[in-house]
Simulated assay, not measured.
Amino acid sequence: MKEIDLKKLHTNQRLLVEELKKRGCETSILDDDIELLEVTYGQHHEFLLDRFTSKVPHTLTAITRDKYMAKYLLRRAGLQVPEGKLFDGDQIDAGITFAQELGFPVVIKPNWGSHGDDVYSGIESEDELNYAIKQMFLTRGEATPFFIEKYFEGKEYRIFITGKGDFAAVHRDPAHVIGDGIQTIAELIQAENERRMNPRTTCLCPIAFDEIAKQYLQKNGYSENFIPQPSEKIYLRLTSNVAKGATCEDATDKLHPSVIELAQKALHVFKGLPYAGVDFLTTDITRSQEKNTYRILEINPNPGFAMHMKPGNGTPRNVSQLL
C-alpha cells in the first residue's frame, strides 16, 4: 500500500479523502489507475472506489444508472418525470414517429451515460432528430439504446440529498459567454476558459466548444465569429452539465420545502441508497411544486462534491462531511 498523493486524485475523491483525514482516518492507495483506496478508522475498514463504499448497494447503482428503469420507478412512485420512451438502435423510424406524436421540442440521450455526453436537447424537427441520432451513433455505435423524451422548459438544479434529511443545492446554468462588444464568441470562450483554469479555484470546467455547441449557435443564427454586444448573453447549448462548461451557483437557501420533500421521496424510491444527486428541473425553485412545475431528470448514486464545495458563485457547502 502507498501513501496517497492528494494532487493525483480527481477533485471529488480528493475532497472526500481530505474530510476523512480531518476525522483521523488512515487512508492508503491500492491501485493508482482506478483510484482504489483503503480507509480505516479504529476497527472500521472500508474500500473506497471513487466515492463508492460498502454503504452504496451495487444493485441500486445499476438501477439508477439505467435511465429508463430509474424514470419508470420514479413515475410509479407518483413523481413527475419527462414523458419519454426507450428505443433500440434499430428503431430509428419508430423513435421519429414517437417524437412526432409526443410533439417537438424533444430531448434525445443514450440510456446509459454521464456528463451530458451525446445528449441533444431542444430538438425541434425531424431533421434535427435524425442528425442527433446519427451523431450519437457515431460516438457510441448503432446498437446504442436511446431515450426520446419531451423537452421541459425550466431551470436546472442538482440537489444533494441524504436519507437523514441533509441537503445542498446548486443551480446549473448552461454554458454561455457574456459579450463585451469587442471579442468574438470564440475569443470570449477562450478568455473565459483561461479565467476558470488559471488558476482553478472552483468546480467550473472549460466550456466545451464541440459539435453540439457549434450546431446550437448555428441554429440560433450565430457563428463563432459573431461579436456579442456588451452584456449580451449567448448560450452555447441547452444542457447544463458542469463538465461541459455550465456555471454553478449555490441555491441551498432558496429551496422551497416542497422541493426538499420531492428529493427525499425520489431518494426513498431506491430503498437502501444512503444519498444521491437529484437532477431537478423547475419553473421556480422558491415556490411550492405542482405536477406541472417540475420534472426529475435523473438520480445520481455517485454525485459530485465539487459543485457544492467549490461552486462558481455562492456559499460553499461541505457535503463530504455528510457521508
Rank of each mutant, 00 (worst) to 15 (best):
M1D: 11
K2T: 14
L6N: 07
K7V: 11
K8A: 09
K8T: 14
H10S: 14
H10Y: 15
L20V: 01
L20W: 06
G24S: 12
G24L: 08
E26W: 02
T27P: 09
S28Q: 15
I29C: 02
D33I: 08
D33H: 11
I34T: 12
I34M: 09
L37R: 08
E38D: 09
V39E: 10
G42M: 08
Q43L: 09
Q43E: 15
D50W: 11
D50E: 14
F52I: 14
F52S: 15
P57A: 00
P57G: 00
A62H: 09
A62I: 12
I63R: 01
I63Q: 08
T64V: 07
R65F: 11
K71H: 08
R75K: 15
G78E: 06
P82T: 11
L86N: 08
D93S: 11
A94K: 05
F98I: 02
F104D: 01
P105H: 06
G113N: 06
H115C: 00
G116E: 04
D117G: 01
V119R: 04
Y120P: 04
S121Q: 15
D127M: 03
D127Q: 10
D127V: 02
Y131D: 09
M136D: 04
M136W: 10
T139R: 13
R140Q: 01
E142K: 14
A143R: 05
F152A: 07
K155A: 12
E156R: 00
Y157V: 04
I159V: 13
F160G: 01
G163M: 01
K164T: 14
D166L: 06
F167G: 03
F167V: 09
D180W: 14
I182K: 15
T184A: 05
I185T: 10
E187R: 03
A191F: 11
N193D: 11
R195Y: 15
R200Y: 13
R200W: 13
R200M: 15
R200K: 15
T202D: 10
F209W: 08
D210N: 13
E211M: 10
E211N: 10
K214D: 15
K214T: 12
N220A: 04
E224F: 14
F226C: 05
I227F: 12
P230S: 05
S231L: 11
I234M: 11
L236W: 01
S240F: 07
N241H: 10
N241M: 02
K244L: 13
T247C: 08
C248Q: 05
E249N: 03
K254P: 04
H256G: 00
H256W: 01
K265R: 12
L267I: 00
H268P: 06
K271E: 15
Y275L: 12
A276D: 06
G277D: 09
D279H: 08
F280V: 00
L281R: 05
I285W: 11
R287W: 14
Q289S: 06
N292E: 13
Y294P: 03
L297E: 10
L297P: 09
L297Y: 06
L297A: 09
M307C: 07
H308G: 00
P311W: 13
G312A: 03
G314P: 14
P316K: 00
N318F: 14
S320F: 03
Q321D: 04
L323T: 10
